[in-house]
Simulated assay, not measured.
Amino acid sequence: MASYELNAFDRRFQSISLVGAIEQQSPYTLNVGYWLRDPNQYILWPDMVASHPRQDFLWENTCFEIFIGVQGEDYYREINLSPSQAWQAYEFEEYRYPENMPPKVAYDIELNQLKKMHYGLNVSLDLTEFMLIHKLKWTDLFIGLTAILKTSQGDHYFAMQHSSPHADFHNKRDWLHLF
């Protein structure tokens, strides 16, 4: 398991700390955990939903995201995970393309489990179809972990690193995890 401290785009905002952990489990299962420290309870949490529905525009509220890139390829996947238990996966052919809003849904990634925990969020994703269709091995993939935290102090954008002049989670240079 590898862990990463996610940094706020606004470096002055130090009230919340966030760590993400990535683990390959079984031939096609990806587990990710987000550990959050919010001692002032600034985060605004979305209301819980009954099951794990696929929903668009989750980033309009507190949302955790996983980006899955492929070495030497332009295409990638974006997975949005809400503490409400809703989720969605999107496919992109290249940087932010196609530009549809919401983006094109990716049905080649499935959710095994999504849980809001007292410390943050835990998710298990099934990448079987995505990896088999594209003939991928774990070593072909690289991962970016991000979060949009809606707080009483405004919106804050967390990522493994921020190399753009503005918060840009689609910038592959910031997806640091390799298998």
Rank of each mutant, 00 (worst) to 15 (best):
N40E: 15
N40R: 12
N40Y: 12
N40L: 14
Q41V: 00
Q41C: 06
Y42F: 12
Y42V: 07
I43D: 00
L44N: 10
P46N: 06
P46H: 07
P46M: 07
D47I: 03
D47C: 05
V49H: 06
V49K: 10
V49F: 08
V49E: 13
A50P: 00
A50L: 13
A50I: 09
S51V: 12
H52I: 11
H52Q: 14
P53W: 01
P53K: 00
P53I: 02
R54E: 13
R54S: 13
Q55R: 15
D56T: 11
D56V: 06
F57E: 11
L58Y: 10
L58S: 11
E60C: 04
E60H: 12
N61Q: 15
N61K: 14
N61I: 00
T62K: 10
C63P: 11
C63F: 05
F64P: 12
F64I: 10
F64H: 08
F64E: 09
E65C: 03
E65V: 02
I66W: 10
F67N: 03
G69Q: 01
G69W: 05
G69C: 04
V70Y: 09
V70M: 08
V70P: 11
Q71V: 14
Q71F: 10
G72L: 02
G72K: 04
D74C: 04
Y75A: 00
Y76A: 04
Y76Q: 03
R77F: 01
R77H: 01
E78W: 01
E78Q: 11
E78A: 05
I79Q: 12
N80D: 12
N80L: 08
N80A: 06
L81M: 10
L81C: 08
L81R: 03
S82H: 05
S82P: 06
P83T: 06
P83R: 07
P83F: 06
S84C: 02
S84R: 00
Q85C: 07
Q85W: 03
Q85M: 11
A86M: 02
A86Y: 01
W87L: 02
W87T: 11
W87F: 02
Y90P: 04
Y90N: 01
Y90V: 09
Y90A: 10
F92S: 00
F92L: 04
F92E: 05
F92I: 02
E93W: 01
E93P: 00
E94L: 12
E94P: 00
Y95F: 15
Y95H: 12
R96F: 06
Y97N: 12
Y97W: 09
Y97H: 13
Y97G: 01
